[in-house]
Each structure stands twice: as C-alpha cells, then as structure tokens.
Design a protein around this nucleic acid. Structure first.
Lengths: 149, 149
DNA sequence: TATTGTTATACTCTATAACTATA
DNA sequence: TATAGTTATAGAGTATAACAATA
C-alpha cells in the first residue's frame, strides 16, 4: 500500500493534500464495505438499500432510488433480489395504486440489524486515531460541512 | 440530498461521527467530480488515472492499478482509451521488458494541468477551512493513513 | 517457477428511453 | 397529460481465470 503520495501539488496546497489523504481513507473504507457485503452474501448496493429502509415509515421505490442516489429504473432489479431472498416485500398502497411501499420482513429486519452493527464502526484508519485526534477531526469536519450551507 | 443521517451512533462514538462527516464531504465532492469529468469528455476513472500520473517518475501499468485501487486487468482498457486520445504512451523499459511505463504526451500533461486546476477547487468544504484547520486536518489524516500500513 | 500485462468473461451499477397502469 | 414503476439496452467499473512474454 502506497503509490499515490506523489499526486502532490504545491508544497503549501494544504487543501489539496488534505483531500488526497481523505481519498485514501475512503478507499480503505470502500474495501471494508465490500468485505462486509460479501460476508453477508450481498452486493454493496443491496447492503446500502437494506440499510436505508425502515418499517416505521415505509419507503416507496422512488424514495429508495433517491436515497441511494441512483435512477429509479435501477431499483426494480435491486428490490427484486432483496425480495427473492425474502428480505423485503412490495406492497401496493390504497392511496395511490401506482406506488409500491417497501416493507422489511422479519428476516430483513434481522439482517439490517447485523449490517448496522458491522457498519457502525468507522474504517480502521479513523478508529486507529487517538481520542484527541478524533475530537479534533470531528470539530474540523463539522466546520467543513457547515461551510457548505 | 439527505437520507442517511439516521445511521447515528452513540453520542461518544467519535470515530463514527467523524466518518459520517467525512462521508458528507465526499458526497459533495463526488458529484462535482462527475461534472468536471463530463466537462472534459472523460469518465471519472480516466480523470483519476491521468491525475495519478507524472512524468517525473513514470508509472507501470500495475502501479496505476494499485493507485486506482482496482485490478490490473482493468487498466489495460483504461490506458487504451487514454492512449487512443493521445494523452499517454506505453513505453517498454529496458530493465524489465515485461513492464510498461506510462508517459504522458504533451497533450496529456496539458490536460492533466487543467484537471488539477479544476480539482484543486473541488472540495469546497475543505477549501473553506482556515489554514490552521487545514494543517491540523493534514496532520490527523496523515496519521490515519499511516496507521493502515 | 513467478511476474507483467493482456484477453475473455461475467456481474454490478449506472443512465436513458419507451412502455404500463394508474392518476 | 403526468407520474410510479417496469423493461430493454448500453456503457462503465469491477474481479477472476487463463495466457504470452519475460524474468
């Protein structure tokens, strides 16, 4: 593991340097996510989908699409797979019979809990930091995100 | 834009909190990245590839693969496209004739510079930080990344 | 024997466009 | 007409396995 430290940038381009490092952290996290998904015999997208659902306020297909940040046409096959594994059900609504609500089965709820548990942990790169570093990181990133609004 | 704030986490789960925030930053940047790539008539992956290269220390195909975090077999077609656009050249090395070094053409260097310029501004969330915060962020993330090795 | 890059293949994720059934 | 979901399709990204040339 190394290879792209040299993307650097002017010696004082602190923002660019920070971004490169953040990218590294993401790459390691993506790999972890794939491992978690594979361990549950799912694709990452299926994991994200199940993670997004809740039975307290059932989602429509289109809501799931926007939650995943993809086109609605993709959600059909995705939900097909979850449904064929007995994790969710499509249920037509009375109010508008075009809409389909997504309800998790018991198995779906249970699997979602397992996912939550495994995903709760931040990637190792972050967890390995000292408490002090984590606090500082939270504070800085809070300011970063806040600046977008 | 919303939808996964509910993954939250114990109040003192600093790592998890930092991770959520980092995710926010990343999401804002990913969308921008796609716009930049489309504006240059490239795919995001092609942009990442060109961004990773340097003529000061030319990369082998396998190095580019590890820099992109993908299997080496994918790099063949990727470099084919960059090469067909006259942005890079494969050059066999004398030391080990199995290895192919990737050299940017003049056009590649120029396009890379345009990419760098546009990407430097990319994560507004980060650029908006104070210099002090950027320095601290670099230091913390350096430790995070270093902890992976 | 091991490694670099290539090819073949297959699967996932993605968007666009056309369709259906409702509204 | 407009919208929710589906289908068909195509392109990009991904990994695995087998191969040639070279080490």
């Amino acid at each position: 593991m190394e290879a792209q430290a040299e993307v650097s940038t002017a010696p004082d381009d602190l923002g660019g340097r920070a971004w490169e490092l953040m990218f590294e952290v993401f790459k390691s996290a993506k790999a972890y996510m794939e491992v978690v998904a594979a361990g549950l015999d799912m694709t990452p997208q299926q994991v994200y989908a199940l993670k997004s659902l809740t039975n307290e306020r059932p989602m429509a297909m289109s809501e799931l699409a926007s939650s995943l940040g993809c086109d609605a046409s993709n959600v059909t096959a995705l939900v097909d797979k979850l449904e064929s594994r007995g994790l969710v059900e499509r249920r037509s609504t009375d109010r508008d019979r075009r809409v389909k609500s997504l309800i998790m089965t018991e198995a779906g709820v249970a699997l979602r809990a397992r996912i939550q548990e495994r995903m709760k942990k931040a990637p190792a790169a972050i967890e390995n930091l000292t408490s002090g570093d984590k606090v500082a990181l939270c504070e800085i990133l809070s300011r970063a995100v806040a600046s977008l609004e």
